Amino acid sequence: MPLIELDGLEKTFTVRRKTGLLRRERREVRAVDGISFTVDRGEMVGYIGPNGAGKSTTVKMLTGILTPSGGRLRVAGIDPARERTRLARRVGVVFGQRTTLWWDLPLRDSYRLTHRMYRIPDDRYEENLARCVELLDLGDLLDVPVRQLSLGQRMRGDIAAALLHDPEVLYLDEPTIGLDVVSKARVRGFLRELNAERGTTVLLTTHDLTDIEQLCSRVMVIDHGRLVYDGGLAGLHEAGDGERMLVVDLARELPPITDVPGARFVRADGPRQHLAFPASASAAPLVAAVAEAYPLVDLSVREPDIESVIAKMYGGAAGELTGGPGSP
């Protein structure tokens, strides 16, 4: 049985705006428009889309903060809107711009309050806290008031707080925002280990698409409240007409390579040439053709930037693109 089930989920808001001195116009905005998907236990799923697409609204319904306007929703067999307190013990949530920590208390005291609130067994609490402190490098921050933490430090503190009670599901909204490169790598490694060792299900929304590439085998794209893609990263590249780049280093500067079937010359930087080819195609025949006809020193294949692929999807008529499990 899937851990998360959405069937025709909808959320409509009523918006009022001033249209005259004494007149106001009332209209309905459909933030989530009939989304359906399932997530199995242990999956790490990226949930991405432009600002205003409906990502945060979906997560708020998954946690019970918002009540759906229509459709069916279950998390671990629980209706979040009706049994929010019961569900809270089984999920962890990190909202990038909003902290769940107590602003004027040291980080350690925030964790102690979480310990009591969730009634976590003492031995389990100590074990989880020690593990989070070590892997997220929080040792020097435990006695610092939350208000004095940087954004990146607070994000790491929030992630630890969300995991102290061993949630089955972890919702992450921009978990690496404000982090430097080293801290991002630490958080990503921590999440991979958490998923591998404990089977924690993770739903990740982010604008840092490297998070998606390094953590998620499945990605869902939402636009204007509708699910426009659900599948693997490779399928996302295909759906968005993604191209990979073959970077060829030649022994000397030569005219553009234009005679390799399936490849398109992009540019040359001295003896280095860049050839584009469809993301869905194999690089092997192109490499063989270049190596046979040109004095090759080195080459590499660069994967397409997911952000540009998604931008292409949004720029065109995306329609109902599907490509994997949980597709509507």
Rank of each mutant, 00 (worst) to 15 (best):
L9R: 09
F13Q: 02
L22N: 09
R23N: 08
A31P: 05
V32W: 03
I35T: 14
I35A: 09
T38A: 12
V45K: 02
I48V: 12
K55A: 07
V59R: 01
K60S: 13
M61Q: 07
T63A: 11
G64S: 14
G71F: 04
G77K: 07
E83L: 14
V94Y: 10
L101C: 03
D104T: 12
L113F: 06
Y118F: 13
I120K: 07
P121D: 13
E134T: 12
L142H: 05
Q148F: 14
R154S: 12
A162W: 00
P167A: 01
E168P: 10
Y171A: 11
T176C: 02
V182L: 03
K184L: 05
K184D: 11
V187Y: 04
V187P: 04
V187S: 03
F190N: 05
L191P: 08
L194G: 15
A196Y: 01
A196C: 01
E197P: 15
R198D: 11
G199Q: 06
T200W: 02
L204C: 07
L209G: 03
D211K: 10
Q214W: 15
Q214T: 15
G225Y: 06
L227D: 00
D230R: 09
D230M: 09
D230H: 08
G231M: 00
G232A: 15
L233N: 02
H237E: 12
D241A: 05
L246F: 10
L250M: 12
A251T: 05
R252T: 07
F265S: 06
F265P: 02
D269K: 10
G270K: 13
R272M: 03
H274D: 12
A276E: 05
A276D: 00
A276N: 02
A279G: 08
A283N: 09
A284V: 08
A288E: 07
A291L: 07
E292M: 06
V301N: 09
R302Q: 10
P304E: 04
E307I: 04
E307D: 02
M313G: 10
G316Q: 00
G316S: 00
E320H: 03
G323W: 09
G324C: 10
G324I: 02
